[in-house]
Structure formats: structure tokens, C-alpha cells
Amino acid sequence: MTLTPLNPALGGTFAPPVMEARRWLDGVVFPPERPLINVSQAAPVDSPPEGLRRAIAEAALNDPAAHLYGPVLGNSELRAEVAAQWSLAYGGEIAADQVAITQGCNQAFCAVTATLAGAGDEIILPTPWYFNHKMWLDMAGIKAVPLATGAGLLPDPAAAAALIGPRTRAIVLVSPNNPGGVEYPAALVRAFLELARARGIALILDETYRDFDAREGAPHDLFADPDWDDSFIHLYSFSKAYRLTGHRVGALITSRSRMAEVEKFLDTVAICPGQLGQIGALWGMRNLRDWVAGERAEILARRAAMETGFTALEGWKMLGCGAYFAYVEHPSALPSPEFARRLVREAGVLTLPGTMFMPETDPAGQRQLRIAFANIDRDGIATLMQRLASVTF
């Protein structure tokens, strides 16, 4: 049989890691007394609060416009709400027309990088990286340049500067980090902005997990810079704070001139973000401040349980922990992909190996795992520690 042509960039992109890991469950039976502990994906599994669900339901039943195309750049009220709340939270000035609503934060990343780089260009990603960022760059023919992180999984601006070449278009940071969990100090984020500005490239900061940052107040001062939009691009997701994963609602904040290019991308791939999800996000922003604070407190308590639990695990090493994730070194001589698959069969734990977050040439990934602990409570974390402690392979 003659195959139709395949885009080599897409064909050379690795398979979705979460879907690959789920296939490890095929044929495995988990007894009732030892059910699967799934720490492979960072996504809320519970429904949004009732008030938010009612707001969506009311719109679905009674608002005809909720079922029509909306503005390409998103609901004007939601854009204005983001601008107002972010301006207050970060001590800066953000206008509604500098905000776009997207079909999830992944689409925000795709849209922004499409305005910055084309095939053959380069974007710097600290490692371990968020695999969907790497996948999109591969699909687009953009070279992902790995920036190894040091102690505490913190990237070094000087090391990044040495990687900037004539085709470098941006540096991407994620804080709190996925997969590492670490929160980047404000001074470090500022140093990366100054580097990007000095070298004429963009700084993309993905703050999907900002609502679960352990620090009080603004995590950085970039929006307080009156010229922030010359180099800085901010990404956000409503999925985690308001449990809207299935509705796909994200946001990006950038300059007005770049927003005109973003609009071209979004109009082509989605026409507009989903109306009902945006209605839910707006209602959540206006009504769920205290509820989100409670969710944050619970996540921070689970983080503390993870940190305490790992201090008692012989041979294991925690490299980073925060927001939804712990990033750890395992004690086995097995490479992490094989170790992770055996954890499913022999410990009833599904997690992701570090090789899914690292270049193939980096041996560190063979010793590392990402544990997405946000979906298990403190009792579940205690059980997880017991199972990891029992591992002998």
C-alpha cells in the first residue's frame, strides 16, 4: 500500500506522554485493597463549585449568544476582568486589549510562539521541560534549545545567555514549574526579562499554577515595569483554579501589536474560545476568591505532606516540590521508563518518567520521575509513601 505524505515534523514528534502512560494500565488488575494511585497528570478530577456550574447551566439554557461564535480574542468582560485583577495583583498596568482568551493555556503557548518563530528558528526551554511545549516546537519545525537547570531546578540567566544565537526568538519559563514544582524567585524572573530585553528576544512566562504559589503577594514585578510589553509575554490557565479543564479556557497577555498577530492564529485554528467555559471563568473570577484560597491552602498542605514523606524514603531524593508537582530521583538501577512501568504492576502507582521531560541525550532523565500529587489527599499521599518505601526493584 502506498501511504499518503506525512509531515516529517509531525511524524518526528514524540507521542503524548500522558496517553502513553495510560496504556501501561492495559491488562493490569488492581485489587480492591490496593487501588491504583494515579499521579501521572496534573488536572482537577472534581467538578467546579455548584455556583459556577449553575452559571454555565443558566447561560446554556437562557443565553442564545452562548451558543454562537464570539469574539476571536475572547469575551470582552472576561478580558477586562483579567486585566483589572492582574493589574491589582501585580502592581502594574494591563489593558483589556492586551489580554486574549484562548482554548486552554496550551493554545496560548502555540499562538504566541507562532507569532515569534518559524521553521529553523530557536526557542530556549529550561530542562526538565513541559513536554507539550517541546511537542509544539517540534511540530512547527522550531528548534527547542535545552537549558539545563542547576541546584533546586533553577535556570541560570548566564547559561541562557550563552545559548542565544542569531535565530533565538524567545526564552520560556514556567513558574511554579511543571514538571519541577519549583517557584522561581522574583529576582531571577527579572534577570531573565533583562536578558531578553538586552538581546532583542521575548520572555514567555507560563503561570498556569500561579494560584497555588506558596508565596504571598505578587510572585514577580514584571508587570510593574512600564515597558513590560516590549519583551514580556504572560500565559495563564483557568483550568486548575476553577476546575474547568474540560472547558479549555486559558489566557495570554502581550503587547497590542503582537495581539494583532495572535488574532490571526486564533481565528484560523479555533475562530473563538468556547463561550460556556468563558462564562464560567468570569463567574469564578468574580465570586470564588475565598474558595480558590481554600483550594490553595489544601494544595499547600499536600505539598507539605509530600516533603515530609520523602524525608523518610531511603534512597529517594526530592529535587523540587510545589503547586501540583514533585520531581524526584528514584533509587533503582533501572532506567526511569522501565521503573515507572514496574511501579504500575508491582506498586499500583502510575507516574511519569523523567525521560518524558528531558532531551534524549540527557542521562539525568533516566533517574527521575514526576509525581503529580494534587489529585490525592493527605491520606493518599501517606499510602503513596508506603508503596514507594516497599519498592525493591
Results as ranks from 00 to 15, higher is better:
Met1Cys: 05
Met1His: 13
Leu3Asn: 12
Leu6Asn: 08
Asn7Lys: 12
Pro8Cys: 04
Gly12Lys: 02
Thr13Val: 13
Thr13Ala: 15
Ala15Cys: 06
Glu20Pro: 01
Asp26Lys: 13
Val28Ile: 14
Phe30Ser: 07
Pro31Cys: 04
Arg34His: 08
Asn38Gln: 04
Asn38Trp: 02
Gln41Leu: 12
Gln41Met: 10
Ala42Ser: 14
Pro48Lys: 05
Pro48Cys: 09
Glu50Gln: 09
Leu61Met: 12
Asp63Trp: 01
Asp63Glu: 15
Ala65Met: 09
Ala65Asn: 07
Leu78Gln: 03
Arg79Ile: 03
Glu81Trp: 01
Ala89Tyr: 12
Ala96Asp: 10
Asp97Phe: 06
Val99Cys: 05
Gly104Leu: 06
Gln107Arg: 12
Ala114His: 04
Thr115Asn: 00
Ala117Met: 00
Ala119Lys: 10
Ala119Arg: 12
Gly120Trp: 02
Leu125Asn: 02
Leu125Phe: 11
Leu125Val: 01
Leu125Ile: 03
Pro126Trp: 08
Pro126Gly: 10
Phe131Asn: 09
Asn132His: 05
Asp138Glu: 15
Pro146His: 07
Pro146Ser: 02
Gly152Tyr: 14
Asp156Leu: 09
Ala159Leu: 11
Pro166Asn: 03
Pro166Phe: 02
Arg169Glu: 07
Val174Asp: 14
Asn178Met: 06
Glu183Asn: 01
Pro185Phe: 11
Ala187Cys: 03
Val189Trp: 00
Ala191Ser: 15
Glu194Ser: 10
Glu194Gln: 13
Arg197Leu: 12
Ala202Tyr: 00
Arg210Gln: 14
Arg210Leu: 14
Arg210Ser: 13
Arg215Gln: 15
Asp221Trp: 04
Phe238Asn: 11
Ser239Gln: 13
Arg256Ala: 15
Leu266Asn: 00
Thr268Ile: 08
Arg286Gln: 15
Leu288Arg: 00
Gly294Met: 05
Glu295Leu: 06
Ala297Arg: 12
Ala304Pro: 00
Thr308Arg: 15
Gly309Asn: 10
Gly309Glu: 05
Glu314His: 07
Trp316Ile: 08
Trp316Lys: 11
Ala323Asn: 07
Val328Glu: 02
His330Arg: 04
Pro335Asn: 06
Ser336Phe: 08
Ser336Thr: 08
Pro337His: 09
Pro337Ser: 11
Glu338Cys: 04
Arg342Lys: 15
Val344Gly: 02
Leu350Gly: 03
Phe357Thr: 04
Met358Trp: 06
Met358Cys: 08
Glu360Arg: 14
Ala364Gln: 12
Gly365Ser: 09
Leu369Ser: 05
Ala372Gly: 05
Ala374Phe: 07
Asp379Glu: 14
Ala382Met: 08
Thr383Ile: 13
Leu384Glu: 07
Met385Tyr: 06
Gln386His: 12
Gln386Ser: 13
